[in-house]
Write a protein that binds this DNA or RNA. Structure first.
Length: 113
DNA sequence: AAAATGACGCATA
DNA sequence: CTATGCGCCATTT
């Protein structure tokens, strides 16, 4: 897998931010990437979550794409777990998409500032 | 080394 | 708002 340890820092950073996401809130990969300075590398954020999925306990279900779509639900133990978790926290999900995503959106650079 | 893949983002239709 | 195309960047083959 990861042979270089230089990016481990980036991964660790992603985990930290994701764990800071309050319940009933969601964020996007691009927002996290931008906050970490890796703007444009939103894909790498998703990669970090995959690598961290079975290892660390990260509320990855609170992390969706810019459109509010639960694109990563397939990577969970159970695809429905992501939507179920979000609804359980008060986030309404319709057709794999977060309802009022703009209102539930949680930006680290904005809230943590 | 080059091409293909992917939990994305933005522009355009 | 939804659908399609192109671009970004790191990892894998």
């Amino acid at each position: 897998m990861a042979k270089k340890d230089s990016k481990e820092n980036f991964f660790q950073n992603v985990y930290e931010v994701v764990q800071l996401i309050p319940q009933g809130r969601v964020t996007s990969y691009g927002a996290i990437a931008s906050y970490l300075g890796a703007k444009g590398s939103a894909r790498m954020v998703g990669w970090a979550l995959i690598a961290s999925h079975p290892l660390t306990k990260i509320p990855a279900h609170r992390v969706v794409n810019r459109n509010g779509m639960l694109t990563g639900k397939q990577h969970f133990d159970e695809p429905s777990a992501m939507q179920q978790r979000l609804e359980q926290e008060g986030v309404q999900v319709e057709n794999d998409r977060v309802v009022d995503f703009s209102k539930l959106f949680w930006d680290p650079a904005q809230e943590l500032l």
